[in-house]
Design a protein around this nucleic acid. Structure first.
Length: 514
RNA sequence: GGUCCCUUCGUCUAGCGGUCUAGGACACUGCCCUUUCACGGCGGCAACACGGGUUCGAGUCCCGUAGGGAUCACCA
């Protein structure tokens, strides 16, 4: 029975890299009929855990990654918040102290820092000489009398090696002597991450600890804690981290400005901003960031497309197949095929997955996904069937030009009259196009006289018009498009006019002419 | 600086000693389709970090060098 976990601290957002880690954990649990547990690592006493947690849970819900145990769903090992599991940690700390695997230490932070600096200057690894270690209670009292505050440190081995059997990296060997006597409890007795994490992984019966490679250096000390407590070790698998676009450094929420220099990343961001601005999205500046999952949900991405792309960041099936349904993802994933080197986040490739997945949806599905955006933009009235039909018509006509739900903003001219006019196109097809004005006037009269304004009838009408004028379709259609939509491109001209309707079409041509 | 990890096209990757004149995908690009845009079809550009070994034979195994990265908290 495989039990995996994802243990976020409540930060208020879900990082793309974090999701990739969570995905692999989730996949592992789902494919084996095991459990995926969400545990909240809030030992750092966040004042507003609830508010900072919701965006994370929302992210999981949106992505369709359900958790078998954790916040809101509970489970047999409740509670799932580290802040509420203090007793477990206190017991473990006491046990470690009693067995001599940990000790009270009374060094002051600056004293320690001096030692660390000295070690670094001399080029050697820092190893604390335990000079402020309290051998017994009497010594503790003496230090306390001096006004010192005690923490609990691990009494790490000073010889031998720690061998980590990593499911992805194989054997990783570290000299125990290069490890620190890490602090596991603060001066006030509250537990720190390593201790809490190990105790929880054990008490929650986690079988596979699958996490980002940045945790690899943490593993020896965690193994030490686990072994000292008599726990059986879980399997470890350290994933390569997700790197920044076009780079090799870890992807970080805070480096947005830097990533914006990457063309593809900037394109994605700009698109998001346009959609947000047009559709009245109330975006949070702090989380409206392509490094975070929120961003994709807000601008109308498909969760499966995001997941499919993310799955390929550090994993491959065979180098040939890349598109997977959710069921296939669950069935095909294996830790054995996870790569060792960092995978850089490529917004352009993500986009292509999204575009494909969106194009594969039925018109109905796409319309449903676009609806909130059209409503937000004030283009569609959900209470008005006619208005909804118009949206459905636009979505159907746009076809695969719509790559994500928010792309509906490109067809503003189908809904309102104050659309933007592409100046370049206007100049090329109307101002500087010989005879364009005259032809537009003529075709305007033809269109005004139409009794059937369906796309098919319009095609006949305009073709007929071209014949009498002795011109090609291309000689009029561009001017017509710019005159009626202000755009240089778009879906079929006749579908466009049909959607616009006779009145609007003629009025827009008149406006252009004047 | 210490420790650990990593290294195939711009990017994600396939490759587990010979089938590699290195395959696929995204991006870029040429042509075709086409009223535009998008899609699609057919092409193109483009990589084994370097140096030593081992071997009849190395992208694939070993060692070294270089480069990149992660991590060194009373954060998680």
């Amino acid at each position: 029975m495989i039990r995996t976990r994802f243990a976020p601290s409540p930060t208020g957002y879900l990082h793309i890299g974090g999701v990739r880690t969570a995905l692999f954990n989730w996949l592992l649990a789902r494919q084996s009929g095991g459990q995926f547990i969400l545990r909240i690592d809030d030992t750092d006493a966040d004042r507003n855990v609830e508010a900072a947690l919701q965006p994370i849970l929302n992210g999981f819900r949106w992505l369709g990654m359900d958790w078998d145990e954790g916040p809101e769903v509970g489970g047999p090992h409740e509670p799932y918040f580290q802040s509420q599991r203090g007793e477990l940690y206190r017991d473990a700390i006491a046990k470690l102290l009693a067995s001599g695997h940990a000790y009270h230490d009374f060094a002051k932070p600056d004293e320690l820092q001096t030692l660390r600096d000295a070690a670094r200057d001399s080029g050697a690894a820092f190893v604390y000489d335990r000079r402020w270690m309290a051998e017994d209670d009497a010594m503790s009292e003496k230090y306390k009398a001096e006004g010192r505050e005690g923490v609990v440190r691990l009494k790490m081995p000073r010889e031998g090696q720690c061998v980590i059997n990593d499911l992805i990296r194989g054997e990783v060997v570290v000299e125990w002597a290069s490890e620190q006597d890490h602090v596991i409890a603060r001066g006030d007795g509250s537990p720190l991450y390593h201790l809490a994490s190990v105790v929880d992984d054990h008490t929650l019966a986690i079988t596979h600890v699958v996490r980002a490679a940045e945790h690899l250096p943490n593993t020896p000390r965690q193994i030490f804690i686990a072994q000292s407590l008599g726990y059986a070790l879980p399997e470890y698998a350290h994933l390569p981290y997700v790197a920044e676009p076009g780079g090799t450094a870890k992807l970080s929420k805070r480096k947005l400005d830097k990533y914006l220099k990457n063309r593809d990343f900037a394109v994605l961001m700009q698109r998001g901003q346009q959609i947000a601005a047009n559709c009245g999205l109330t975006t949070n500046d702090d989380t409206f960031n392509p490094v975070l999952v929120d961003f994709y949900r807000e601008i109308g991405f498909l969760p499966d497309a995001l997941l499919n792309y993310l799955m390929l960041l550090g994993w491959s099936l065979d180098g040939e197949h890349e598109k997977f349904t959710r069921d296939e993802m669950i069935k095909l994933f294996t830790l054995a095929r996870v790569t060792k080197s960092p995978a850089s986040f490529d917004p352009a490739k993500l986009m292509s997955f999204q575009a494909d997945a969106f194009a594969a949806l039925s018109n109905e599905d796409r319309t449903a996904r676009v609806l909130p955006f059209a409503i937000g933009a004030g283009w569609t009235d959900p209470a008005n069937p006619e208005s909804q039909q118009r949206l459905a018509d636009v979505v159907a006509a746009a076809g695969d030009r719509l790559k994500m739900a928010g792309d509906i903003i490109d067809y503003d001219y189908c809904f309102v009259d104050d659309y933007e006019i592409n100046a370049k196109a206007y100049e090329k097809r109307i101002t500087k196009s010989a005879g364009a004005i005259e032809l537009l006037g003529k075709v305007r009269d033809r269109l005004a006289a139409c009794t059937d304004f369906s796309a098919a009838a319009l095609e006949t009408t305009v073709n007929d018009f071209c014949q009498t004028e002795g011109i090609g379709l291309g000689d009029i259609i561009h001017a017509l498009r710019v005159a009626t939509t202000g755009a240089a491109g778009g879906f079929g001209m006749f579908e466009t006019l049909a959607i616009l309707g006779q009145q609007r079409t003629v009025a827009r041509i008149d406006k252009t002419l004047s």
